[in-house]
Design a protein around this nucleic acid. Structure first.
Length: 279
DNA sequence: AGAACCACCTGGCAGC
DNA sequence: TGCTGCCAGGTGGTTC
């Protein structure tokens, strides 16, 4: 499911509801996610307050307090939704569904429930989350001021791989998955197969801008719901209405009318307009 | 160092 | 109806 806009939608929706709340219990029904849910998860979180919600790439972070001081940071829950994960804030007696793997009970009678059919997601704990190996190796945030045309050009320099592979590589640039990579490349007029290192500075500037505007518009639409994405309150997103190429193979380009083509790059479907996008 | 694969899972759908 | 094969929003690990 989730790329940066979906995780950011989740963060924004849950943050006002969760900030200041304390965990009172945890129930792990299925610890076998991408990595095992820590066996001592409940002991790590009970009695601790959620300070706020943060996002790094596609990871959602819940920094927690110490048991005695609600503002003192002691560590963070690290959550990743993988391909099919969702996190919802529900009444404590809400009916259980298949694949509801973890419940985090809150002090206001509600439960933060993690659901993930494919179990590609993760729920971890760290006293130093940004130093955690999974997060320490992450690339630049696309919506930050650190990311712009020159930065993208520097990331591409010397690389022979296709530009789509580069912008989807979380060690270089975070948050851009298959949907938004396809969409941003369309808006920038760049062929997904173009060798990254061959892109000029102006074209990198155009692509960096397209990545920012695509992600920003998707966040404003509450993300994309293809099959199962919902935010923390169970609401779907609507950005899929705005797709220009993703999922539109065989349909006419909304700009020029050419038939949208599809191909495979590294086992992922790439969709593009053969007329609007070039190397 | 970089690039090409594989692996991990379940569910939905097309085709027979 | 039921089976098979393929596809899906991610990403670490292995191999060359």
């Amino acid at each position: 499911m989730p790329e940066l806009p979906e995780v950011e939608t989740l963060r924004r929706g849950l943050s006002p509801q969760l900030s200041g709340r304390r965990f009172i219990a945890a129930v792990v029904r299925e610890p076998r996610l991408r990595w095992p849910v820590p066996a001592d998860l409940e002991a790590r979180i009970v009695g601790r307050a959620i300070i706020d919600l943060q996002r790094r790439g596609k990871y959602l972070l819940l920094p927690l307090s110490t048991p005695d001081r609600a503002a003192a940071f002691s560590g963070a829950l690290i959550l990743h939704l993988g391909m099919s994960g969702s996190l919802r804030l529900l009444p404590r007696d809400a009916a259980l569904r298949r694949h509801d793997h973890v419940d985090l009970m809150l002090d206001d009678g509600r439960v933060l429930r993690y659901h993930d059919p494919r179990r590609f997601g993760a729920l971890l704990w760290s006293e130093n989350p940004l130093g955690h190996p999974l997060l320490a190796a992450l690339g630049v945030e696309p919506l930050s001021d650190d990311f712009d045309g020159p930065r993208l050009h520097a990331l591409c320099r010397g690389r022979s791989s296709a530009i789509k592979q580069v912008i989807m590589d979380a060690h270089l640039l975070v948050g851009v998955g298959n949907i938004y990579a396809n969409e941003a490349l369309f808006h920038a007029g760049i062929d997904p197969r173009a060798p990254a290192g061959a892109l000029s500075r102006p074209r990198c500037a155009r692509l960096a801008a397209a990545i920012k505007t695509t992600l920003t518009a998707a966040i404003a639409a509450g993300g994309s719901t293809l099959r199962d994405f919902v935010d923390g309150h169970g609401n779907p997103g609507w950005f899929q209405q705005n797709y220009r190429v993703y999922g539109r193979a065989g349909l006419p380009c909304t700009v020029c009318g050419s038939v949208i083509r599809t191909l495979r790059q590294g086992a992922r479907a790439t969709c593009f307009c053969p007329r609007c996008q070039h190397r």
